[in-house]
Nucleic acid binder design. Structure first.
Length: 282
DNA sequence: AGTTCCCTGAGG
DNA sequence: CCTCAGGGAACT
């Protein structure tokens, strides 16, 4: 599932394939995917040159000067650059022609089995007004340690839910939240206000270490994740707890547990991530 | 803060 | 068959 490292990898692989190229005809084959379009519809994209591709949270932003494309891949979305003649399957919902003057035609395609993902085409100046972007918290790889301490100090609730909450910190999903808390040895249900400073610092530094390591590995390919060139990532081989329920903890051998939390699941080691013992009553 | 919904392929 | 997974919005 595309989380920060996967979306970062998609943006990085997409950038050299589309930057500088001019967009042509766009074909939309699933209306619900397009949440916003300019007054002229997708035809407004024709003739625009792609300036740059970047990531914010779990979203891919394609800057075309005065227009911007915003994609959210949710769980099964893919952004691919393929030869224009390559067969489209029933999950290809949007295709935009890429012109380059040469004879080799390509398309930027959005593909999404579950159709949870979306695209917005909006005036570049209104990017910060896009609701899904406006609500985002800071980037986990940009926030400094002191700001992260302050961020958690202002929040109540379970640490795992806070890491998953995009308005707290942007880009972390279930896989990396579990991996971060395991590395930091913090129980997922621990309330933020009860975390010791050393634990908050551990969450901050493991968050950076794991996200950076996952980006180096080009993301985690579970389900159908692939980058813009169609390549899978390698971080699934380095996962310590996610998806390992019942298997031995790689640190202590205890069976990994899985519990429901906030409509999701949390995998953790019950020994390495002991819940905080309540204060002793006197 | 928890529940429901969207959607579909995979796995039981 | 049936159930489940899961990001995030919308609801309660």
């Amino acid at each position: 599932m595309p989380e920060l490292p996967e979306v970062e990898t998609v943006a990085r692989t997409l950038a050299p394939l589309v930057a500088g190229r001019v967009l042509g005809r766009a074909e939309l084959t699933c209306a619900k995917i397009l949440r916003q379009a300019p007054p002229g519809g997708l035809a407004a994209l024709e003739g625009r040159r792609v300036r740059e591709v970047r990531r914010r949270g779990k979203m891919v932003l394609i800057d075309c000067g005065d227009l911007a494309l915003v994609f959210h891949l949710k769980m099964t979305g893919q952004l691919l650059v393929v030869p224009a003649g390559a067969p489209r399957d029933k999950h290809t919902h949007l295709a935009i022609e890429l012109r380059d003057g040469g004879g080799f035609r390509q398309e930027l395609r959005f593909h999404d089995v579950r159709k949870f993902g979306f695209c917005r085409v909006c005036p570049a100046g209104e990017l910060t007004g896009v609701p899904e972007i406006a609500a985002l918290g800071p980037e986990p790889l940009e926030i400094c340690r002191e700001d992260f301490r302050a961020l958690l100090a202002r929040r109540r609730g379970r640490i795992k839910s806070l890491l998953l909450n995009q308005s707290v910190v942007a880009g972390i999903g279930n896989i990396y939240a579990d991996e971060i808390l395991f590395a930091a040895r913090v129980h997922p249900l621990t309330r933020a206000e009860r975390l010791r400073r050393a634990e908050i610092d551990a969450v901050w530094s493991e968050m950076r270490a794991i996200l950076n390591r996952a980006i180096e590995s080009k993301g985690t390919s579970i389900s159908n994740y692939i980058d813009a060139e169609g390549r899978a990532g390698g971080f699934q081989d380095l996962l310590q707890v996610y998806g390992r329920e019942g298997e031995p903890c790689l640190r202590c051998g205890t069976a990994i547990k899985r519990i429901p939390i906030a409509g999701r699941s949390a995998s953790f080691c019950p020994r390495c991530q002991r819940p905080r013992r309540p204060p002793r009553p006197r």
